[in-house]
């Protein structure tokens, strides 16, 4: 896909875990200022892709370029510098359970800057305000509902005003109201802060509603990509199955197994 400004360029990415190939030559572009969704059936390694982008894993082959720098060849300190400019929202929030909501958001600020406590307090309250949880600042993570925990984690992810945010399954397991909240937050944060967002998800409805561009992964390859409209009108069998939620198609219903009759007969003969 041609680009005016690709913040993240992934070219010919190969990654295998043991003997299992997770990515078999993937090309991806994440545009600056836009919300890009990476979707696909469960188990296609979407979370792994985020970890590759964040440098927690190293690819077997291929390149991952973020803002002109190659992540796959960075050493530890360069990676740490890069990560200060990225924010990540984990599926379950991943808040530090032994400190309060306030301290959780202040954590990256305190670790990476020498700002005085007064200023940190202002920053933290502003981030909390952005996600609508300023009043919850003294609660402990164990006292939060799932949706609230995710919002706090989001506030923490934007604490250092990153250039890029990654969301790992942000819609999974949410009730409709929380869903609406998260959708609204992702959209407004992206626009208000001029972020580039990468959403990894398999919730078509929500994702299609806010994503500017969608990549469909299956079997370690990109099987379809385009805007939400383009994909829903696509002829590709993959796109059709996924966007329409069909149980059987290019992604088969049956896990690979022997022929049914011979399997049953085998049991009888034993």
């Amino acid at each position: 896909m041609s680009d005016t400004q690709s913040l993240v360029k992934i070219r010919d990415l190969h990654f295998a875990r043991g003997s299992r190939k997770i990515f078999d030559g993937i090309d991806l572009d994440i545009q600056t200022g836009k919300i890009t969704a990476i979707m696909g059936p469960s188990g296609t390694g979407k979370t792994t892709l985020l970890r590759l982008i964040g440098g927690q894993l190293k690819p077997n082959r291929g390149s991952i370029e973020i803002d002109g720098q190659h992540v796959e060849t960075m050493n530890r300190s360069e990676l740490f510098q890069m990560r200060k400019r990225m924010g990540m929202l984990f599926q379950n929030g991943a808040l530090l359970t032994d400190i309060s909501v306030f301290d959780n958001i202040a954590f990256p600020i305190r670790e990476h800057t020498e700002l005085p406590e007064q200023l940190i307090r202002t920053l933290v309250l502003m981030k909390l305000e952005a996600v609508g949880l300023r009043g919850a600042r003294d609660l402990m993570p164990s006292e939060l509902s799932g949706g609230m925990a995710r919002r706090v984690a989001l506030a923490r992810a934007i604490a250092l005003d990153p250039m890029m945010l990654m969301y790992d399954e942000p819609f999974t397991g949410q009730d409709p109201i929380s869903m609406g909240v998260i959708v609204r937050l992702i959209h407004s944060l992206n626009d208000a802060l001029g972020l580039s967002s990468i959403i990894v998800s398999h919730d078509i409805q929500e994702t299609a509603a806010i994503a500017d561009y969608i990549y469909l992964l299956s079997g370690g390859k990109v099987v379809a990509h385009g805007s939400a409209d383009e994909l829903s009108q696509s002829d590709s069998a993959w796109a059709k199955q996924f966007m329409n939620g069909e149980p059987d198609g290019p992604v088969p219903f049956h896990y690979p197994a022997d022929d049914l009759q011979s399997d049953l007969l085998q049991k009888g003969m034993d």
């Binding site: 927690q56 510098q81 200060k84 991943a94």
Partner: peptide, 9 residues
């Protein structure tokens, strides 16, 4: 939580 810390550099 450990992974989150890593991602926060």
């Amino acid at each position: 939580q450990l992974s989150a810390m890593e991602m926060m550099a």
